[in-house]
């Protein structure tokens, strides 16, 4: 807080002592930071463009804002948002659980496990998600029954595929298995980013293997994993919209159903857009705090939260005001002091 223009002027001393008189004069001058006129121009233009865009958005009746507000919290829409969230959660949870297993397989010394993990990632990354979803949706056509038992031997339980894998399960399964391929690579990148010496130190201390991974490896890998994982989660929130082809009542599908009935296409698309925006905003904020949590120990000073930043700025303004006031008072006192004798 003490670092700003004014105190620095007091410390400033001119080079060379020959002309001490004019030097001491320079030392008392006020420091003015360089001006950036083009930065102001660019900022001004941006503000005007933004205002124009907002104006166009608000004044054009084609957006039908009253319809938007009417449907934004419509019960069917809210339920559809619920389904979207459910699909996202299932996709991410199962995706990351399976992805972590795949990453560990890929890093295991066994060539068979390595090859399997590589093959999985290859297959599920290569086939378009929409195709994968349709395969799961039509699983019953491929395998009429699913049974549990000894491999290639007798079976103890048998289910009709249609009963076991309904459309919602098929969608969650499809999203999760596809997601797992990406998650595997993200987790693997995280593991690779941790210094080999960390596991060696853990091994030298006799820390059990599972705990080495959970307590030493994962928390450090998280620093690398979280930003990419955030991308994936946000991607999946929107990605769930592809399951509309399976007629699952998630947000995008439901919006289409409604506008097919009432013809308010743009307004309802806007409703969906607003909800997606809202969900990703919440996730982005959550990501910020999760990242901060895993940064402990890794950076010397944690970056301030937005709230801390606001408070710091307020405190600085306050300090500046107080300093100015005391400067003024001192100046007044000096002037009156000079005049007095």
């Amino acid at each position: 807080m003490t670092v700003d223009g004014k105190p620095a002027t007091r410390g400033f001393s001119p080079i060379g002592t020959a002309d001490a008189e004019p030097g001491s004069e320079v030392a008392s001058l006020r420091v003015v930071p360089a001006r950036h006129p083009w930065r102001w121009v660019a900022s001004g233009v941006t503000v005007v463009l933004l205002a124009m865009a907002l104006h166009a958005l608000v004044t054009n009746p084609a957006w039908e804002w009253h319809v938007v507000s009417q449907y934004l919290f419509y019960e069917t829409i809210l339920r559809a948002v619920g389904v979207t969230l459910q699909l996202t959660a299932l996709g991410i949870l199962i995706g990351f659980a399976l992805g972590t297993v795949l990453a560990l397989m890929r890093l295991s010394p066994s060539p068979l496990l390595q090859a399997f993990a590589w093959g999985y990632v290859w297959l599920f990354r290569s086939v378009p998600l929409i195709l994968q979803l349709l395969f799961w949706f039509n699983l019953a056509l491929l395998y009429d029954r699913i049974s549990l038992g000894i491999p290639f031997g007798p079976s103890f339980w048998e289910f009709r595929t249609q009963d076991l894998v309904g459309p919602l399960t098929a969608a969650a399964l499809g999203l999760a298995l596809h997601q797992a391929a990406y998650c595997a690579e993200i987790v693997r990148a995280g593991f690779l980013s941790v210094d080999q010496g960390q596991l060696e130190a853990a091994a030298a201390l006799g820390i059990p293997r599972r705990r080495q991974i959970r307590r030493i490896l994962l928390p450090q890998a998280m620093r690398t994993i979280i930003p990419t994982a955030g991308n994936e989660i946000i991607g999946l929130v929107k990605g769930t919209s592809v399951v509309y082809i399976m007629a699952i009542p998630e947000l995008f599908y439901q919006v289409q159903v409604i506008y097919a009935r009432n013809g308010r296409v743009i307004a309802l698309l806007l409703v969906a857009a607003i909800w997606y925006l809202l969900l990703t905003t919440v996730l982005s904020i959550a990501q910020f705090y999760v990242e901060r949590y895993y940064a402990r120990g890794a950076v010397r000073m944690l970056p301030p939260t937005p709230w801390q930043r606001v408070r710091a700025a307020a405190a600085q303004l306050d300090a500046e005001r107080r300093r100015r006031r005391s400067d003024r008072q001192r100046l007044d006192a000096e002037l009156t002091g000079k005049e007095a004798p």
């Binding site: 960390q198 060696e200 130190a201 928390p219 450090q220």
Partner: peptide, 20 residues
């Protein structure tokens, strides 16, 4: 791992756990 608990090891690069 159990045997290693009887053997202390100090590394050249310390290898402290940075998140702890």
């Amino acid at each position: 791992l159990r045997q290693r608990t009887h053997i202390g090891f100090v590394f050249q690069n310390f290898n402290l756990f940075p998140h702890l």
